[in-house]
Design a protein around this nucleic acid. Structure first.
Length: 727
DNA sequence: GCAAGGTC
């Protein structure tokens, strides 16, 4: 008599992984929502299939948004299917119940959320909790490697008991519940109190605070003038520029002091005090994580994070030429070496120039910069898998090229260069010159030499080849230069910059103890959600895009100001605090802290938060005093002093909207560049409001001399020259 | 109408 053999059911996080398993295990029978043969059933989730109840699912009174019904703190939390994917959930649940005698293998991604995705599905499928404990019935497949057939088979041969990952599941659940509590209670409190739809969340609010703070810092910034002095030297070996310095200081705080140095050294002859040569190696850049790719694509091509993600997704999913994009790793696993060799062989045919100088010894597990298992989590770095198909779009080619070149560069030799530091002295003044000479370009050949120059730092001494100088060589001063500069405010956030600060909140954290944050393991949001968080801030009208920049709007600043006015609630505006939160979740996953304690603390916080909103007074006057509420960047800059029309921004100037092509109309204009200096927007406001400005530095006269002056409006002048200097 | 985390 034949007993029907029980099958092993494998649950993956997404269809593509199910395909990898099917290939490795030779499962070919395609069914609706799963694959099956005599030994295996392979089915898949589509990310999360299950979500937490909504407030009104616990109690109908929570349907209405009202202060008296807050806080929302259910005593137990329940899950329900996500509507969009309920069909697939039903299929999995049916398979689970049909397969009761067989084994279940959890093969969702190796991480906290992967665990949550699987556990919530098993919960809905009625898999008893005891099946997860020390049972042969439910197993966990765990690897961070790319799912080649060898990796899948090896993983299936070393399955763990699912119960070993309970702590990870608890950490994941704590994350979900904490985020839900903050979101529901915070959003409703703020919305009711401020009379407009406001959303609050652990990640979005901390990110919004970064952008709002940046706007305020820039608005409050007072530029300080300083001067840089440079001397041009010559002797029989050649000529070179040097920048004045004294101890660590290169800035000169008054024009008089700079002039005094000029007096002292002009036409004199000094000598070379020291020549230092250093050979340096620069390793190839690490492979791309999604955020790194989004940052590069944004700063080089202006792509939004969302756009880069969707292109990378298409190249992964449809064109099959990139690996899984939503990864935070910047390395590969040691088991990926044979895969890498195959890819290099394949791509060398399509892109021979890029791959011709690969160093074969670097395609080796000993090369830890690329192959490092200890720095892998769910997925390895983004790499090309195949050449780009012919029909790809231009944008797809752009993203593909970035990834393909990074990949090629990773297996090239280091770039070797020689750095020379020279100090020249004239009288008692010292000057610094730095030269850089590339000895072996190494990986830089992949990018061509043009991209080698870094963004110029402010004291960019001539970064070129210096003459072959030696100590005590004479140095005659043949020219000098005084450069007028101004300290500049922190830059406006581009997406690239914001993604960087989201990945690495370390700069906001003072204490060294938070080592994980320093290692970059912890950030605001995750690879999969960062682009989406930015979109949420835009959708809520907290933030606005202006060209490449993300600028906080009044609504966003108001929320941050309001939260900062509360003792407890203000921690939501701190990247540091939310990073600590994330660390506690890690401790739960490690078994060093209990999820219950964590959630109790969160509940206390929720009580405080709601109380603060309930009793807190929002006094606009007081808020304005402590931190002035800022105005939205306006579309009009003020009234035309000549005709009273609106002043609007044009291409070359801020002009009167009553200007007309046909008959001229009013032609009042404040030019965007005046005497070689970009006109600051603050000056435009001042001119239109007061008719004059503060003293502005950095103008250049027709004779090439730098000067400072106020600007003022003189209506006796012609329309196009209504703005004049006031000395 | 509210979060953040997945995936498509």
């Amino acid at each position: 008599m034949e007993v029907k053999k029980s099958k092993t059911l494998i649950l993956t996080e997404k269809p593509s992984v199910a395909r990898d398993f099917a290939l490795a295990l030779g499962v070919k029978g395609k069914k609706d929502g799963y694959l099956e043969n005599d030994d295996y059933i392979i089915t898949w989730a589509v990310g999360h299939l299950v979500e937490l109840f909504e407030p009104q699912d616990y109690d109908p009174k929570w349907k209405k948004w009202s202060m008296e019904n807050l806080p929302i703190l259910p005593s137990h939390f329940h899950y329900k299917p996500i509507q969009k994917t309920q069909k697939q959930l039903k299929i999995i649940c049916r398979l689970l119940s049909k397969n009761t005698p067989g084994q279940v293998v959890i093969a969702t991604d190796a991480g906290r959320e992967g665990e949550v995705i699987a556990r919530t599905i098993l919960l809905m499928g009625g898999v008893p909790a005891e099946n997860l404990e020390k049972s042969e019935k439910t197993k966990r497949f765990w690897t961070s490697q790319a799912l080649t057939p060898q990796v899948v088979k090896a993983g299936m041969d070393s399955l763990k008991t699912a119960g070993e990952y309970d702590r990870l599941w608890r950490a994941g659940q704590a994350r979900q519940i904490a985020d839900w509590l903050v979101g529901m209670n915070g959003s409703r409190s703020a919305t009711i109190k401020l009379n407009d739809l406001f959303s609050i969340g652990r990640v979005q609010t901390a990110v919004l605070a970064l952008i709002a703070d940046r706007r305020r810092e820039r608005e409050n910034f007072k530029p300080e003038p300083y001067w840089i002095f440079k001397a041009h030297f010559e002797n029989e070996k050649g000529d070179w520029w040097g920048a004045w310095f004294k101890e660590n200081q290169t800035r000169i705080l008054s024009e008089q002091d700079a002039g005094a140095i000029r007096e002292k050294v002009e036409n004199r002859t000094g000598h070379v005090v020291s020549v230092e040569k250093q050979k340096k190696n620069q390793a190839p850049p690490l492979l791309y994580s999604l955020t790194d790719l989004q940052r590069d694509a944004n700063s080089r091509f202006g792509f939004f994070a969302k756009k880069t993600l969707s292109i990378a997704q298409a190249l992964y999913e449809n064109k099959k030429c990139l690996s899984y994009p939503r990864t935070e790793a910047r390395v590969l696993g040691t088991q990926n070496i044979s895969l890498v060799k195959k890819i290099i062989d394949k791509l060398s045919l399509s892109y021979p120039k890029t791959f011709q100088n690969i160093v074969p010894e670097r395609v080796n597990e000993k090369y830890k910069r690329v192959f490092d298992d200890s720095r892998l989590t769910d997925h390895h770095a983004i790499i090309p898998l195949a050449p780009l198909p012919q029909q790809a779009s231009a944008d797809e080619k752009t993203i593909y090229d970035l990834v393909m070149k990074r990949f090629a560069a990773a297996f090239h030799a280091d770039c070797e260069y020689e750095q020379t530091n020279i100090v020249t002295q004239v009288e008692t003044e010292t000057f610094h010159s730095q030269g850089k000479r590339i000895l072996k370009p190494g990986w830089r050949t992949v990018y061509g030499m043009a991209s080698e120059k870094k963004a110029g730092s402010e004291d960019d001494t001539e970064d070129e080849n210096l003459p072959p100088l030696e100590k005590d060589d004479p140095a005659k001063v043949i020219d000098t230069k005084i450069e007028h500069k101004e300290t500049s405010p922190p830059p406006e956030y581009t997406e690239a910059l914001l993604l960087k600060d989201m990945t690495n909140p370390a700069r906001y954290v003072a204490e060294n103890e938070l080592k994980q944050i320093y290692r970059g393991d912890i950030g605001l949001g995750t690879q999969s959600t960062r682009a989406q968080i930015i979109e949420t801030l835009l959708m809520r009208k907290y933030v606005q895009r202006q060209k490449r920049y993300l600028i906080a709007l009044d609504k966003g600043c108001l929320l941050i100001d309001t939260l900062r006015g509360f003792e407890k609630a203000k921690i939501l505006t701190s990247a540091e605090e939310t990073a600590r939160w994330e660390m506690q979740l890690n401790r739960i996953a490690q078994g060093e802290e209990s999820g219950q304690t964590f959630l109790n603390n969160i509940k206390t916080f929720i009580h405080d938060l709601v109380d603060e909103f309930k009793s807190g007074k929002i006094e606009p006057a007081k808020a304005a005093e402590s931190s002035p509420l800022v105005q939205n960047p306006p579309t009009t800059y003020g009234k035309c002093p000549r005709c009273g029309g609106d002043i609007i921004e044009g291409k070359k100037g801020y002009g009167c909207s009553r200007w007309r092509k046909e008959d001229g109309g009013c032609r009042f204009v404040i030019w965007k560049t005046i005497a070689g200096k970009k006109t600051p927007k603050s000056a435009v406001f001042q001119l239109l409001q007061n008719g004059t400005t503060q003293k502005i530095h950095g103008f250049t006269s027709k004779q090439g001399k730098k000067f400072s002056a106020r600007l003022k409006i003189d209506l006796d002048q012609e329309n196009l020259q209504s703005v004049v200097f006031d000395f």
